[in-house]
């Protein structure tokens, strides 16, 4: 009786309603969101961040050791009274270098993983959804970049790490409308860490490593488990 009713209902339409609704939802998402973002991208970016943070930490420790040792070998040799500020400048220089390398390595590795997944899915790497995603991620990060540049110029080094986390968090929340929505929670995590870190200045590197390293890895592993495991 039920099957008869069912058959009469769909005599003139080829698709049962549930399937049709799923089709509609799928097309809405595929046309408005970039869905090939790979979990491996998150994991690789996180690993790069942890390596970068370790390198930065080692560099800072070596700087502090030099400070504690009154005079470094070089300054003693040269009788240079300016050596402390000179080596501080060298420290910042090295830290920027490490940050730059970390960012580029993280970007390239995540790009490669996502491109691989995009190829498997047969979606384009530069269609409308990608362009929108890119613009909406880059805009908050670019604004953050200017703010951080000004902070460094003004000597507010303690605010650099929290501002990185906060602007990156905002970028991710903004991006979540244009890709797999779960990235929003990664954004919330960065924002929380960033806000706490505004008042815990000396711990910047640890918060930075937690946000960009550990949160990325956790997020990436979760996304891989949810979307790519079976593939």
């Amino acid at each position: 009786m039920l099957t008869l009713f069912y058959k009469v209902l769909f005599m003139d339409s080829q698709h049962p309603p549930l399937e049709t609704l799923q089709d509609i939802k799928r097309m809405m998402e595929q046309s408005s969101r970039f869905i090939s973002l790979s979990g491996w991208s998150g994991i690789s970016a996180g690993v790069c961040a942890l390596l970068g943070a370790t390198a930065a930490q080692l560099r800072i420790v070596s700087y502090l050791q030099a400070l504690r040792g009154d005079h470094t070998y070089e300054s003693y040799y040269r009788g240079d009274t300016n050596s402390l500020s000179a080596s501080a400048a060298a420290l910042y220089n090295d830290l920027f270098l490490i940050a730059g390398i970390t960012f580029i390595a993280a970007f390239i590795s995540s790009f490669l993983f996502t491109r691989a997944r995009s190829r498997r899915n047969g979606t384009s790497m530069w269609d409308r959804t990608v362009q929108r995603l890119a613009w909406n991620t880059v805009l908050p990060m670019m604004v953050g970049g200017f703010v951080i540049l000004r902070l460094v110029e003004s000597g507010f080094y303690g605010l650099v790490a929290p501002c990185c986390l906060i602007f990156y968090g905002l970028a991710l929340v903004n991006a979540s409308k244009y890709t797999l929505g779960e990235i929003r929670y990664l954004g919330y995590g960065q924002l929380i860490l960033g806000i706490i870190n505004l008042w815990t200045g000396g711990w910047g590197l640890y918060f930075w490593a937690a946000g960009f390293g550990i949160l990325h890895i956790v997020y990436g592993a979760f996304m891989w488990w949810k979307y790519e495991r079976q593939a």
Binding site: D12, T20, D23, I24, M27, M28, Q30, S31, S32, R128
Partner: peptide, 28 residues
């Protein structure tokens, strides 16, 4: 909306402000 293609077109247009013919062709 019985046709899958017409339904697909509407699904895409309802979440995107403006879509070109070629993008629609590719997606569907």
């Amino acid at each position: 909306f019985d046709s899958r293609i017409r339904m697909g077109v509407m699904s895409i247009l309802i979440v995107n402000e403006e879509v070109s013919f070629n993008d629609l062709k590719q997606m569907l």
